[in-house]
Design a protein around this nucleic acid. Structure first.
Length: 554
RNA sequence: GCGCCCGUAGCUCAGAGGGAUAGAGCGUCGGACUUCGAAUCCGCAGGUCGCAGGUUCGAAUCCUGCCGGGCGUGCCA
């Protein structure tokens, strides 16, 4: 519909140019918006005002010219008005809106999908928590956003891969191995002074216990430098496994798990540094090796090889991102915690130095989650090993509520997550509001079928009896769903989907309370069933993008 | 100090490539179930969009400066 109107307007302007009723000018992109106020029509354009700034004619005059030159061959427009400072408002013929019901029923699961992405390859990397401890609530938010974003991009026609980057080498991992080893010795009766810089959580002890029960005192007699690597890899494997289980239960499944260790094995880290050296982006100072990121706008140069000879995390990241492009992704998306935002300029400098476009990388920053219970903050201290894990959230509030709440607010604003509110089944918690709309529709359809009324097929339907303002409103809302998905993809903003779904559910609940779907009027009953069945499809598709279930009963 | 993000109703937040009269939910108060699910609906109240300038036909939205909050600013990850 939008495309049709755009085309008609463009033609009308072209027509004005041809007849010289408008002076020569370049036709700017025509923006059609959906007015908030229904008195302003179904679509509205400001094109006359935009043109007025280029030529000496009043917006009203230009608008009149455009309108009088418009050819509505398909009779889709019911009425056109010029209003306000020069808006052209279009009122669409209801028959056109009824078409969208047919489209929804025909496309079903595919309704809302498009080919915006044209099959371009995109990678979304998210969560990527270090395998040194269980996932916490912040990872949950990142997981929900990354997963949903990937779903949305897929829906608009990108070829998407979801990846988890495993930082399985480096200081933190070494510390993990040492922590487990010390707990192991402690369990076997040695008197141990456990350093405060080591991982304090109970899960470390659990891993040590497991090793004791499997291997008993075997590693006690071994030299420490031989034993610790064994504890390290055992710990990593164990923790990574529980991370996978948690994510699975959270409904997040990755296409690929990428190991930093493999990056070293293939010599990618060092060869990336060498490659940069050839381009003179690398120099030595104070015994360390530096990357000249200031060349690309970073505030200072960054170390890639420490004076100890160890490469930095940043060096790995350069190699990792280079590899992403080499694997054929045109766009790569990194979902990071906002506390890493200072890292963005240097990694962007990096990919430019490696010869890729700065905007080929999009970093989505996820703000922190404030965990509350009944309005009061829940204390969390990573160092003391006291934190609320994603597992606990899943057990307490459930996957659907957790995901929906994570996705309802913009990623870049801090989020208050109240455990008690998340369990409530009221409008504090819009998950159930949306799911309830879906369940209600299922219930109505079921009731209808018990009365031997099936959801009708398109040719049997008299959609024109759907002439209530609420019904047209619902149809129009469903009609914009594909635009919502596209906009959400274009701006990398998943939160638009839950917002839309809540509005859609609200329109439905209002309609449902005011009118009856099943009545003695057979035509009307059929038409309304057809309407709500379409609504059910849209709700399902939307919830599916969020990774939230659409229950038939609740 | 410098950099990034955020300041919208009492609270939590939307506001869709500048658009017309800035919207929801919660909370207050008052109403609606013998009829398709009351996890719902309807109504009332609530605002100088942090402040001050600028850009223009038009700004919550873009630019500059200030104020307030968060985060970052390692040869840590």
């Amino acid at each position: 519909m939008k495309k049709k109107l755009t085309k008609m307007i463009t033609k009308a302007i072209q027509c004005c140019l041809d007849t010289h009723s408008l002076p020569f000018l370049e036709i700017p992109p025509i923006l059609l918006e959906l007015p908030k106020n229904s008195a302003h029509g179904d679509f509205s354009t400001n094109i006359a005002m935009v043109l007025a700034s280029q030529i000496e004619k009043s917006p009203y005059e230009i608008a009149s010219l455009i309108v009088s030159n418009m050819a509505d061959n398909e009779h889709v427009i019911q009425k056109v008005e010029i209003a306000g400072p020069g808006f052209i408002n279009f009122f669409i013929d209801p028959r056109v809106w009824y078409q969208t019901l047919h489209i929804i029923h025909e496309l079903r699961r595919a309704y809302g999908s498009s080919n915006l992405g044209q099959g371009k390859r995109v990678q979304v990397e998210f969560v990527s928590a270090n395998p040194t401890g269980p996932l916490h609530i912040g990872h949950g938010r990142g997981g929900a956003v990354g997963d949903c974003l990937a779903n949305i991009l897929k829906a608009v026609g990108y070829h998407v891969q979801k990846e988890y980057y495993i930082n399985d080498v480096g200081n933190q991992i070494d510390t993990l191995g040492q922590s487990v080893f010390l707990r192991y010795k402690q369990l076997l009766g040695e008197d141990i002074d456990f350093p405060s810089t080591y991982y304090q959580g109970d899960y470390i002890r659990d891993i040590a216990k497991e090793i004791v029960s499997k291997y008993n005192r075997k590693y006690l007699n071994m030299k420490e430098e031989d034993a610790i690597p064994i504890f390290t890899s055992y710990g990593v494997k164990h923790i990574l496994n529980s991370i996978k289980v948690d994510l699975e239960d959270f409904g997040v499944r990755f296409d690929n798990w990428y190991s930093e260790k493999e990056l070293f094995k293939s010599d990618a880290v060092h060869s990336t540094v060498r490659g940069l050296k050839d381009k003179e982006y690398i120099y030595e100072k104070d015994g360390a090796v530096w990357f000249r990121s200031t060349r690309f706008g970073d505030e200072k140069d960054r170390v890639v090889v420490r004076s100890t000879g160890d490469t930095t995390y940043f060096a790995s990241d350069l190699a990792y991102h280079k590899g992403k492009f080499e694997r054929g992704f045109e766009t790569i998306i990194d979902v990071w915690g906002a506390d890493h935002h200072g890292y963005v300029p240097r990694i962007q400098a990096g990919i430019q130095a490696l010869g890729y476009r700065k905007d080929a990388l999009k970093v989505i920053l996820i703000q922190m989650v404030n965990l509350l219970r009944e309005g009061k903050p829940v204390s969390m201290s990573t160092r003391a090993g006291e934190f609320v894990t994603l597992r606990q959230i899943l057990d307490e509030v459930g996957r659907d509520a957790a995901r929906f709440i994570f996705l309802t607010r913009r990623a870049d604003t801090p989020l208050d997550f109240d455990l008690e509110v998340a369990k409530k089944k009221t409008m504090d918690n819009p998950v159930y509001y949306v799911q309830y709309a879906h369940a209600r529709i299922c219930s109505v359809i079921k009731m209808a079928s018990e009365r031997n009324i099936a959801v009708p097929k398109p040719p049997e339907i008299c959609t024109h009896v759907l002439n209530l303002p609420e019904e047209l409103q619902l149809i129009k809302q469903m009609a914009i769903y594909p635009y919502i998905v596209e906009g959400s993809a274009y701006h990398f903003e998943p939160h638009r989907i839950p917002y839309y779904l809540t509005q859609l559910a609200s329109s439905f609940h209002g309609y449902y309370n005011k009118y009856r779907i099943l009545s003695h009027d057979s035509d009307l009953t059929q038409a309304r069933l057809y309407l709500v069945a379409a609504l059910k499809i849209v709700l399902e598709n939307g919830l599916d993008l969020l990774g939230v279930s659409a229950p038939e009963r609740m």
